[in-house]
Design a protein around this nucleic acid. Structure first.
Lengths: 205, 205
DNA sequence: AAATTTATCTTGACGGCGTAAAGATTGCGA
DNA sequence: TCGCAATCTTTACGCCGTCAAGATAAATTT
């Protein structure tokens, strides 16, 4: 009687509802935006009752925290992959590449990025989320440290360099996502990417 | 029978409910955050029924749009006042001052700033909001133009300078508001302000 | 293999939300 | 003064998140 979808869902029990709900939540987030997101909508997408998510995630904050944690894990993969395309001996080029990966992730996953950086709907005390977010931060610290030659957190100049690096890539990401940089976004995609690369490498240089 | 609060509210009619609702909305926003904000909460704060706001603002988006418009108007005043504390002949110093005013406003009005820049709950097609936001943008363009010597929107280098300026101050504002720059915020307030000034003036220099 | 426990999901209910419609009250112009 | 328009309240609807209780399936024990 149950309509199978994939290897799971053979009736009353789902099989891997946790995974299905996370995927449904990402779609819900992308389609409705972080403000229109609803738990019941996720349940409907996953084909279960509105109260089913509670058992796996407790409440809506639990689901969004898990999704945000996955977001940071994927975020780290994206920036790492970008870094590895640069000359391994050129710390500055690697940091610039990481920054461009930061912006790339934001543009490719706007709703997820917003959840990760512009929302209080996720609980950043939750362990997995905290660890994933910290790992991304530490990658940034290491990247700036490789350029500066010291741990940026230990010196005043290092902290300033760290803050400037983070702020420029985060500011560009956030302003692009909120559609406020029309003067950049009205251009062709290649032109804009050239501008972004030029801006980031100038500020980090 | 009616409990007077101020010169208005003499019974069934309020007197200046529109103004009272805007003030209530700002308090509601500051206390509950942009996510916990409710229209009924605003009405309760203003001492009217939950459906009263509809007549003045239509729906919740109308109220938040009006509040965001006021936010941008105050924002422009803040940045303008900051600019005027700098040497009138030093375009760069004036731009840096404006950027620090940008950050200052964000820190002084976190919930309002979030509504203005990180929310889709306001309708940016609404005329007054659009005009107020545009005016702030134009001030930024003029400030960068005064440093560059040309209209930044007309040249590639100008657009990059404009984007970098905006991104650095906006990125710092947003990351500070979301409590993610602990390595800056753990310091004393004066130390942090010195860092912010150094970062902004270095990027704009 | 049967019985029992545990995990998973559904159903139903509650209060709070935004909003629409209809009624009550007041201010204002004719 | 009378009638109209503006302002506010009341009531109602559907949707939301969450809780509690029940149904079902899987796992474990005997």
């Amino acid at each position: 009687m149950a309509k199978d979808s994939g290897p799971h869902r053979q009736g009353y029990h789902h099989g891997d509802l946790r995974r299905a709900l996370l995927e449904a939540a990402e779609v819900e987030l992308a389609e409705k935006g972080p403000e229109g997101f609803t738990l019941r909508g996720c349940a409907k997408r996953a084909g279960v009752s509105h109260a089913a998510p509670a058992h796996h995630f407790g409440d809506v904050a639990g689901l969004l925290s898990a999704l945000a944690a996955e977001g940071f894990e994927r975020f780290l993969k994206t920036t790492s992959a970008r870094m590895d395309t640069a000359d391994p001996d050129d710390a500055r080029a690697r940091l610039v590449a990481m920054g461009l990966g930061y912006i790339e992730f934001a543009r490719a996953n706007p709703a997820l990025f917003t959840l990760m950086f512009s929302s209080r709907k996720a609980d950043f005390q939750e362990e997995r989320l905290q660890r994933a977010a910290t790992a991304s931060f530490e990658q940034l610290v290491a990247g700036v440290g490789a350029v500066a030659g010291v741990d940026p957190l230990t010196t005043r100049q290092g902290r300033r360099q760290l803050a400037a690096t983070w702020a420029i890539v985060h500011g560009l990401s956030h302003l692009l996502l909120s559609q406020r940089m029309k003067f950049l976004q009205d251009q062709s995609s290649e032109e804009m990417n050239k501008d972004l690369a030029a801006i980031v490498s100038r500020v980090l240089g």
